[in-house]
Nucleic acid binder design. Structure first.
Length: 616
DNA sequence: TGCCAAATGGTGGGC
DNA sequence: CCATTTGGCA
């Protein structure tokens, strides 16, 4: 593989980088903290920098790049972008993990090196404790002066070994570890516990630390503003004292996870501990200049020193691009919103799935409030957080099982679908662990898939697209994969309850979709949320973008905490506003509460007005 | 058991 | 902020 000289390297898939992005890309002497507002392309920047380092040989085999994100989506997205630009032997050296996957990987690889009594049995299980589980523990162990938040924070900060003495909180943490290790063959570890185990592992094993330092001279950190104390500690314990160069990207104006233990000063800590140079990007590729101007008013309120971004997107709509819509009643609000969206769709301004309705909280209640009015106009609202059975729709859609079964069913519903054929073939190749170089093996898979497609087409023709057919259709696809094969390939489906949770949700949602769809193809579209208006909380919308963003409920009851001195709430408002590519609207209903006068005063000079919304 | 005052939750993610 | 739950006490 021939390498590109650094001075000859050019970006891939984008026209060019802004000058500051070039500076941050070429900085190899020290760590950089790339701060940038919404839509600046922070993730894309990381993908370009990875491509640069790999293609120029500045990161040369066997050295690797370690990229760490919070969400699986983000980690996968980053890996995909690099894989698209680099040949496989280079892309393989770009390791994109979530914090938790990275921690678990270390525990699994070096389990034997974890000192007693913390070394977990090989068959340990991952648990995701919910509030109730912590409460039950505190109840059972009679820790009465401790609440769930305190316990969780204490576990996140505890250094192993935990001494079972001293404060009640410390005793609770020690007791918690003991209880989780009670049945040694079925040790139950949460991700928080895995994090603490990694710290212990690295402290006790300098050789592992050395190996890490050797393998990963380059580190990327995505969404750095949301780093928790535990995660930051893990990074420090793993890479303090190494030569590793970090590239962290983030936006502290979008820091909205402090209530979930994110550090209040992650950027300052990073600059200090890792001697990082701060570089701010100024382009906004998402929103047009009229929106960017308004965004900057909010941004300046959050951080008076922030630079005004340069809008790099075109304005494609006429009329107001931002406003606060006032309604006389909640019913009028629902009807007018549905009517407004219906008109937008009819006039071709925006597709339903390009419109998002965002809420502060309680998306389920808002769904009940808005859904009937939407349905009455033939619009569908998808509340991504809604549970089907025991799993949220958005989680269900992210599951490997769902993705595989969906492409198989798609093959049965469509006459020709090269896209789904390829993804089904890839899934099959992974499931059966067939080597990409094994021509005969691949040939065999193709034949098997061909046979299946014939069969599933027959099945779907025989089964009417009605709710009662959901189970049988899904089962047919699952049988093709084979449940044993699936479980071998995906450890997360080995436990029956874990598999059932996904399976039941899948069948339930498919059944629901078949209630309103006329064909299998429509039902699968409905399943994926095609042509539906997305409804979600601001937190879930982070990182996403929509043609038109409508925030439901800009009143002092929904936003009880949006006061001039509560910074994190203003950040939330900023995140909501900056999801919009073309237009951002906010609804206010006197039924529900009073206007937020200080917010209106802030936005008024930027031309955002409160208007009494009238339907036609 | 019933009453009233005080506390609490609400926004999330991870193999 | 406010609806709901919890806790103390009679």
């Amino acid at each position: 593989m021939s390498l590109v000289r650094p001075e000859d390297w050019i970006p891939h898939g984008v026209a060019d980088l802004e000058p500051r992005a070039w500076e941050a890309l070429r900085q190899r002497e020290r760590s950089v903290l790339v701060t940038a507002g919404a839509g600046a392309g922070k993730t894309e920047f990381l993908a370009q920098k990875a491509t640069y380092l790999l293609q120029t040989g500045l990161c040369r085999a066997p050295k690797r790049i370690l990229a760490i994100s919070f969400k699986r989506d983000a980690a996968r997205n980053l890996a995909d972008r690099v894989a698209k630009r680099c040949p496989p032997e280079q892309a393989r050296r770009f390791n994109s993990y979530t914090f938790d996957a990275f921690a678990k990987g270390l525990v699994d690889r070096f389990r034997a090196a974890i000192p007693d009594p913390y070394r977990p049995a090989a068959g340990y299980r991952i648990v995701m404790p919910r509030r109730q589980d912590y409460e039950d523990f505190l109840d059972a162990q009679n820790f009465r002066g401790i609440n769930v938040k305190q316990l969780e924070r204490a576990i996140a900060r505890a250094r192993l070994p935990v001494v079972n003495s001293g404060s009640e909180l410390q005793r609770a943490v020690a007791e918690y570890w003991r209880v989780q290790y009670n049945d040694y063959d079925h040790v139950q570890l949460s991700f928080l516990m895995l994090n603490r185990l990694v710290l212990l592992l690295l402290r006790e094993n300098p050789s592992i630390l050395k190996a890490l330092h050797f393998t990963y001279p380059v580190l990327f950190l995505d969404e750095f503003q949301d780093t928790t104390f535990a995660q930051f500690q893990l990074l420090r314990s793993a890479f303090d004292g190494s030569e590793a160069i970090f590239t962290a990207v983030g936006d502290d104006k979008q820091r909205i996870m402090m209530w979930a233990d994110a550090m209040p000063d992650a950027f300052a800590q990073f600059e200090q501990q890792f001697g990082a140079q701060r570089i701010s990007l100024i382009s906004n590729w998402r929103s047009h200049e009229d929106l960017v101007r308004i965004q900057h008013v909010i941004a300046s309120r959050i951080d008076p020193t922030v630079e005004e971004p340069e809008a790099r997107a075109d304005r494609l709509v006429d009329g107001d691009v931002a406003a606060i819509w006032e309604f006389a009643s909640a019913d009028e609000e629902a009807n007018c919103l549905a009517q407004w969206i219906e008109r937008e769709v009819k006039t071709g301004n925006a597709e339903p799935h390009e419109v998002a309705i965002l809420v502060r909280m309680r998306a389920d209640e808002v769904e009940c409030q808005l859904s009937p009015a939407c349905e009455a106009r033939g619009l569908r609202l998808r509340n991504v957080a809604r549970n089907v059975g025991d799993i949220a729709i958005q989680d269900l859609l992210g599951e490997d099982l769902t993705k595989m079964l969906l492409s198989l069913l798609r093959l049965g519903a469509a006459t020709r679908s090269p896209e789904n054929w390829n993804s089904a073939l890839q899934d099959l190749q992974f499931l059966e662990a067939v080597d990409p170089a094994d021509e005969a093996g691949l040939q065999h898979l193709q034949l098997r898939l061909q046979g299946f497609v014939r069969e599933i087409r027959r099945t779907l023709r025989r089964l009417d697209p009605l709710p009662n057919s959901a189970g049988e259709a899904a089962q047919a696809a699952l049988d093709f994969i084979g449940i044993q094969v699936l479980r071998r390939a995906f450890p997360s489906y080995q436990r029956q309850p874990d598999f059932d949770r996904v399976w039941n949700g899948l069948v339930l949602l498919l059944r629901e979709c078949l209630e309103r769809a006329g064909t299998w193809s429509d039902a699968l579209d409905e399943f994926e949320g095609l042509g539906q208006i997305a409804l979600m909380t601001i937190h879930k919308s982070k990182g996403l973008e929509f043609h038109t963003m409508i925030f439901y409920g800009l009143d002092n009851q929904t936003w009880w905490s949006l006061t001039p001195d509560r910074m994190e709430e203003l950040n939330s408002f900023f995140v909501a506003f900056t999801r919009a590519k073309q237009r951002a609207f906010f609804t206010l209903c006197i039924d529900r509460g009073q206007p937020l006068v200080w917010i209106e005063n802030l936005l008024a000079p930027a031309g955002v007005r409160r208007v009494r919304f009238l339907g036609e």
